[in-house]
Design a protein around this nucleic acid. Sequence first.
DNA 1: TGTTAAGCGAGACGGTACGTCTCGTCTTGTT
DNA 2: AACAAGACGAGACGTACCGTCTCGCTTAACA
Lengths: 238, 238, 238, 238
Amino acid sequence: MSDSHDVMGWKHTPGDRARRHSAQRGNKTQRLALLYAHEVTSSTPDPSRRNERSRQAILAATVELISEVGYERASIEAIAKRAGVGKQTIYRWWPSKGAVALEALDESLATVVDFRDSGHLLDDLAHHMKAVTQLLSSTELGPVIQGLIAAGQSDPSLSRAHLDKVIEPATLAWQERIRRAQASGEIRADADSEAVIDMLFGAMYYRLLLHTRPLRPEQIDAALHIAFLGLRKPPEEA
Amino acid sequence: MSDSHDVMGWKHTPGDRARRHSAQRGNKTQRLALLYAHEVTSSTPDPSRRNERSRQAILAATVELISEVGYERASIEAIAKRAGVGKQTIYRWWPSKGAVALEALDESLATVVDFRDSGHLLDDLAHHMKAVTQLLSSTELGPVIQGLIAAGQSDPSLSRAHLDKVIEPATLAWQERIRRAQASGEIRADADSEAVIDMLFGAMYYRLLLHTRPLRPEQIDAALHIAFLGLRKPPEEA
Amino acid sequence: MSDSHDVMGWKHTPGDRARRHSAQRGNKTQRLALLYAHEVTSSTPDPSRRNERSRQAILAATVELISEVGYERASIEAIAKRAGVGKQTIYRWWPSKGAVALEALDESLATVVDFRDSGHLLDDLAHHMKAVTQLLSSTELGPVIQGLIAAGQSDPSLSRAHLDKVIEPATLAWQERIRRAQASGEIRADADSEAVIDMLFGAMYYRLLLHTRPLRPEQIDAALHIAFLGLRKPPEEA
Amino acid sequence: MSDSHDVMGWKHTPGDRARRHSAQRGNKTQRLALLYAHEVTSSTPDPSRRNERSRQAILAATVELISEVGYERASIEAIAKRAGVGKQTIYRWWPSKGAVALEALDESLATVVDFRDSGHLLDDLAHHMKAVTQLLSSTELGPVIQGLIAAGQSDPSLSRAHLDKVIEPATLAWQERIRRAQASGEIRADADSEAVIDMLFGAMYYRLLLHTRPLRPEQIDAALHIAFLGLRKPPEEA
DNA sequence: TGTTAAGCGAGACGGTACGTCTCGTCTTGTT
DNA sequence: AACAAGACGAGACGTACCGTCTCGCTTAACA
């Protein structure tokens, strides 16, 4: 199971690797995995023999290079050279540059983006969205994310993986949070939670990808202001 | 002036071409342009001698190829071959594949997207946004737009040109329209018109580019519903 | 005809190129060739547009590199770099490193090896074989020839081309010469001319390829001595 | 001494292995060898622990693969896989593919080629050369020998080993035999025995390596006919 | 009405990067 | 410690396109 190719073409499930390295060698999980060994194709590499040092060097080199020369011009060849690694070591574990970039992003992300429930939806949304804004504008990961989305336009499996690992975990959590706020009467009940997310996150990504204006935290406040009060003329002003 | 390179690197101003072709050959405007010929670099081509048949063939081949094999895999080499044209004829008039795609998009666009003012902002927005949704989801131009935005992530001049020709004309018009609605008291006055556009258009592009869910007209209604009423619990429900 | 692929996979007949360059542009031969243009496949390059400077640079770089680092370690990549040429320019005109080496050898050969008929077979053979010996021992072309024969062991078409262009023209001429000497009564009539060539040339190539002893002109005299007198004990000594 | 690297880079002297296997494990010869162990580098493997089954499998797989796909395309990787052996097991005991092929050839050879002295030089030469011809033309070992000589062009130590193990034992023996025939008056005394061998063996290898014509036993007779009688017109015919 | 200069179709060119292959070494766990 | 297995750094392979260039040809504007 942990060895089989996933939708993205990855030859392993990156999460398993982390678990492996945090566990004792030769433990039960390891032996269990061997029972499924017959399921894998002959060309599938063995994640338990993977060189963690190389993996880290590749991920680091990827983020560095992309932030230096941009996503497009960061070739796999250059990444390998910078990481002091053979090209094949990249191709062995990832199906494309995008997959490497996504894993690099994923690793950096855990610590960056939070999710908290203070009981006040708007405050929490503002806090989260400002963190995301900062991430998207950052010199390091901003270009990685832009490049990832760009590459996703012509690589459905990369787009899918990006959704699964990065986008949906957050959006689904927020949709759930919104539905709870509707149930508790904190906000109106007839709003489509998915549409709310599309609008709030969309506003950020629209600026990021269309380059209309620079992404700024103030934008978040303006957006939440509108989302909360609505455009309709307030009755008391009538 | 019509011959000088613009921000995108175009060797002509596409608009001039249209004007040229609607005018008689050899008229005064033409001759005037030649007076300025000494200002341009020696390699600047003469738009008055351009082969319109080739230009159309290139634009058509570009849209066809992109919709068939995707933006990335539609190489300039393949476009030239499909159009029955030499590569140099493309490089002579456009600086990049993206520039060709943008011009192709621009030509197709005029007829597709409208802008009307019925006096009812929400209705007009809904009408426009549904037209845009249809465009973005279309088999022909959808991939062109996606590819254009993707390419824009690593080509600022393309992104700029896309903004100038396609995005901003619409968004600026809508921002103006919103401000008029605020002035006339149709909607509340304290909403940032730019943020409104970011949210509404962002909601569409977010789905288009992140591939969370297919773009649907119903989504537009849900978004406008939220934008108009807001999330705040209506006082009468309290 | 002159444009079609030959046995070796060459995209042209090298000889034609020479003729082309010695002729006036746009002459009859040129126009005639166009009549046969429909015979060539779409991917066949057009020899009349070939860059002679590049061709010469490639051939020179090939010989240089091979004599410096040996045939095996002279990669096409390194040849291209040394010649200041794109790899594709090599692959466009030759099917393999061996083909380049063979053409380089062929061009150098014309001036090197002679064929003369003084009326005295043994003298002429000695003269020719010593020239060949010198060639095979030379620092420049020796390694090219060794490499060519080595590569020919696993590339039949290269071996074939080597035979056609270099080996057989000489051996067939000598076989014919031997037969004439038999007819004229200069040497005995019952010797198989082909076997004679195999033995004389074989003696040189045997040393070259098996590395038993260095190739030396004296060896030629010893071989011809045996070939002429034979091993049989002369009757007068009995 | 038996453990030290030889010219070829072998980590053992193959002959010792044979001796070892014919002896009881742990006998005196074995223990004696160990006394010299300190002379060898730390990475030198211990031949007494060598797995003979693997060695045989490797040699067999090598000959098989080469005869199936040719020398060039028989990679060490493929040989290891076919032999059911780790790559390191090959690299531990041989310095190159050629060394493996040579040992495989050497083992097969003992039984194939004979050397006899019936007192009639020409007959014995004919017999031996026809056996060699058969060997060189065989589907199994022919390609091995061709490949070995080809590889020898860019690997002097392989060429040297080939000479030492295969070529020179035979040629030296034949040179000696020829000298005896000269001493006994069986053939003329002024022929260079080395040149005779070069011519007779060269005739076979020339055909093998240059691919002028298929190797045939009849060729041997023609060659010996010439070598014996010589080309000179016999006086009695005058 | 012939001259001439630019656009054109075609495609060769010097390059870069691709994704694959094999090399010879290194690492891991088994025998 | 040799072994089977195979990951690793290295780098060449042959291909696909890039953007520039050069070649004849066609096609106007001018002379």
